[in-house]
Design a protein around this nucleic acid. Structure first.
Lengths: 148, 148
DNA sequence: TGAATATACATGCAACTGCATCTATATTGC
DNA sequence: GCAATATAGATGCAGTTGCATGTATATTCA
């Protein structure tokens, strides 16, 4: 029942604080421009990458790390906003695919500069390229699943 | 209007993914033990650290990085659960202080082992002490405010 | 001093989330 | 082939959050 080292506690606290703060910076910048939240961007990007085939909600949920019901409702909102469309899926009548629309593509493109500029100012400009790679690698070690 | 480097995008993505995943690990472990969420832990810890004097909600909000209304409602719930108590504040009739109760202290103590074990398995054990210090330092560079 | 402004905290309402559960189709095993 | 089980997705409900605004006290400054 040893305690954690002070370095662990410090790094954990910094990780939580910094990730939350950066996320708020991005979300705030998007909102300030009257744009939707990052979760819409992430979903639109994944759906766009899936091309004309589209992607199944269950696959999207894994990529976005969202719960099933969260994905279901996010897709509802994206459809309602005309940013994606449902494609009925002949080989599995339980489900469907979603594909991005032209409006969806345009919105994602419009969001990117805001997202990018915020990341540049608050992330890229604050570390050297070397440091960024080190950071990515250290974080990556935390991300590997238990099944390694 | 240069784009971000691939290393930046990779590190940003990893940061978002890892911080969310770790947070879910901790929250999941707490829930599995029938314990309240991390935000309760954080608030109880800060309030406990403020001693018998207690702490003002506006001060707590800065420490917890919560919006004002979020703090107000979190404190409501902690009071309702008997974990903290409000102390009327003679030198500022607009507000009050909050102080931890014995029940609050006990709950926080009970939460710690679950929190700690999760961090040990998912964080401390996955990096060397040296790496953890490097990680903290790199993240710290991202956390410094614009006013430097 | 007292009107204007700022600060501390609360709250109504709408949107969002988590949880549990539901429906429908697919797959598996006998 | 069919009963049992698993998977895809939706949804009712309760709890939580965000936003805008409200109330009350404190501070500032003419």
């Amino acid at each position: 029942m040893e305690d954690l080292t002070p370095a662990t506690i410090a790094a954990w606290t910094t990780l939580m604080t910094v990730s939350r703060t950066l996320l708020e910076q991005v979300e705030g910048a998007l909102k300030a421009e009257g744009l939707p939240s990052l979760s819409w961007y992430d979903a639109l990007l994944e759906i766009e990458k899936s091309g004309t085939e589209g992607i199944r909600p269950y696959a999207l949920k894994s990529k976005l790390l969202l719960p099933q019901y969260g994905t279901s409702r996010l897709l509802d909102r994206l459809v309602a906003a005309g940013l994606i469309e449902r494609l009925s899926c002949d080989d599995d009548k339980r489900g469907y695919s979603v594909r991005i629309t032209e409006d969806g593509r345009k919105l994602r493109r419009d969001m990117w500069p805001v997202y990018r500029d915020t990341l540049r100012g608050n992330f890229e400009d604050r570390l050297t390229d070397e440091e960024i790679k080190t950071l990515n690698s250290l974080l990556g070690a935390l991300g590997t699943t238990i099944n390694d």
